[in-house]
Structure formats: C-alpha cells, structure tokens
Simulated scan of single mutants.
Amino acid sequence: MHLLLVEDDPSMRSTLERALSRRGVRVSSCDDGARALAQWRTSAPDVVVLDLSLPGMDGLLVLESARAAQLSTPVLILTARGTVGDRVLGLNAGADDYLAKPFDLDELEARLRALARRGAGPQAPREEGRIELGGLAYDKASGAFHHAGQVLELTPREAALLQALIVRPGYAVPKERLFALVFPGEAQVQYEAVEVVVYRLRKKLAQTGTTLMTLRGLGYLLKAG
C-alpha cells in the first residue's frame, strides 16, 4: 500500500512514517497543503492521510480541490478536531473516514487498509445504471430499489442511506459519512439519528437477501445473504 501522509507536525509525521513503514506501508509525506496537492496529483497514492491544520492551504481546501480535480483516492482525515460538526464538515468535503487524535496505531492501520481495499475492491454487478446485491436491485436512474419485481417502499432518508451502502457492497461506510448524506445541513438533528434510520431500514431489508451490518468503530456495510 502506498500512503501519502500530509501532516505538519514533524514529530507526528516522523513517528507515523517509521511505524507504518515497519508494517509494510510505503509512506510519502508532506507538511504543506499546496505541495501536498501537487504530490497527490503525481504520486497516485492508494490512500491519503490528511491533517486539517496545515500551513498555507488548510486540509479542507486541499480535499475540496482534489475532489474538484477528480482525484478519487480514499482519504482519512487525521486531526485534533474531534467534534461531530468538524467530522461532518470533512466528510461533506469528500473525506472517506475520520480519526481524531490521539489514536491507536492498530486502529489507524486497520482503517487505512480498509480504505485501500475499498478503493480497489470489486463493485456489485452492474448493467446500464443497475446495481444488484442478493435479492435487491437498485435503479440509479430512478433512484428506486426493487425486490422480487416490486418496488421497495423507503423513506427519503432510508433511500439515501441504502444508496450510500449499495455502491460499496461489503465495505464499511463510516457513520459520519452516512449522517452527512442522510441529514445534509440539519445541524439540529442528533448524531444518533442515523441509528434510527438503520434500525428501520434493517427491518425492511429482512426478506431481500441482503444484510445491513454494524461494524463497531468502522460504520455500516451491506452484504448479500
């Protein structure tokens, strides 16, 4: 796995470089936002670890610029900003996962390898805008889900959550990203509201040949069976 580490703290950067290199990760590093964006364009990393507090060009702007330039590399935000609002802000900007400092190195490695697999992993069978998983089918053009020839009746929030999961079958989607997609711009909504939508959706999927799983600390995933 080739990792681009964007971190302006010299001690943190060198510690992560040494620790991850010992675990078989090839690490390229950078301490400046603008240089990081240029390095990202040319080095084609498998995963990017991005600190938000960077000199010159902060991490959110780096991320937004990368996504605008169609750089689709999975990104894990690593920062001391640990509030739900900051996490949602980062995920809305295009991040794939979020880990607040201080953190456990084993958890960081697990999340990075999960992101690398997600970036290179197989997708559900598709044909002309259609995704199928187990007995569930998703029509991308209409946004409708079908089971056994019938439209699955979902609320808009349930549909938004299910759409986010079915495009990455078998891979965990962080709870923060789901919150940003299901409750966009709704600052008054409690973070735990995602769990209510998951609970209701899980009951509706019970007979479809798909399972909505909770992975503690990683998020939710959808799989066949």
Rank of each mutant, 00 (worst) to 15 (best):
T214W: 01
E192M: 09
G217K: 14
R177Q: 14
L201S: 00
L215C: 10
Q163Y: 00
P156N: 05
R202M: 09
E158C: 02
A187P: 01
K204I: 06
A144Y: 11
V182C: 08
A164L: 11
E192P: 09
K175Y: 07
L201N: 02
L161R: 02
L133N: 03
G185F: 03
A148F: 01
E127H: 04
L218I: 08
L152M: 12
T211M: 08
H147K: 05
E127K: 03
E128N: 11
K203I: 14
A144S: 09
R157S: 08
G129V: 02
A141M: 01
E158I: 01
G219M: 14
H146P: 02
H146V: 11
Q190K: 15
I166D: 08
I131E: 07
G134N: 02
L161T: 03
R130L: 07
F145Q: 12
L221M: 14
Y191T: 13
G170K: 07
R202I: 08
P174C: 14
S142K: 06
P174Q: 12
Y199W: 07
E176S: 07
L161K: 00
I131K: 04
L215I: 15
L133V: 01
T211F: 00
E128H: 07
Y191H: 14
L165V: 11
I166N: 08
V182H: 04
Q163E: 14
D139R: 14
R157W: 00
Q163I: 15
G185Y: 02
A159K: 01
G217L: 14
I166H: 06
G143M: 02
M213N: 09
A148N: 12
A193G: 09
E192F: 10
R216H: 12
K203T: 14
A180I: 05
P184Q: 13
P169L: 05
V196A: 13
A159E: 04
V167N: 00
V197K: 08
Y138I: 10
G219C: 12
T155N: 01
R130I: 07
V182R: 05
R168K: 10
R177S: 10
A172P: 11
L215A: 10
L218Y: 13
F145E: 12
G135N: 01
F179Q: 03
V194W: 02
A172T: 15
P184C: 09
V198K: 05
Q150L: 11
R157G: 13
A141W: 03
A193F: 06
F183P: 03
A144T: 13
Y191W: 13
E192D: 14
V194K: 04
T155E: 03
F145W: 10
L181G: 06
R157E: 13
G209F: 00
L165H: 03
G135L: 00
G217C: 12
V151Q: 13
A193T: 15
V189I: 14
V151P: 06
K175C: 05
K175F: 01
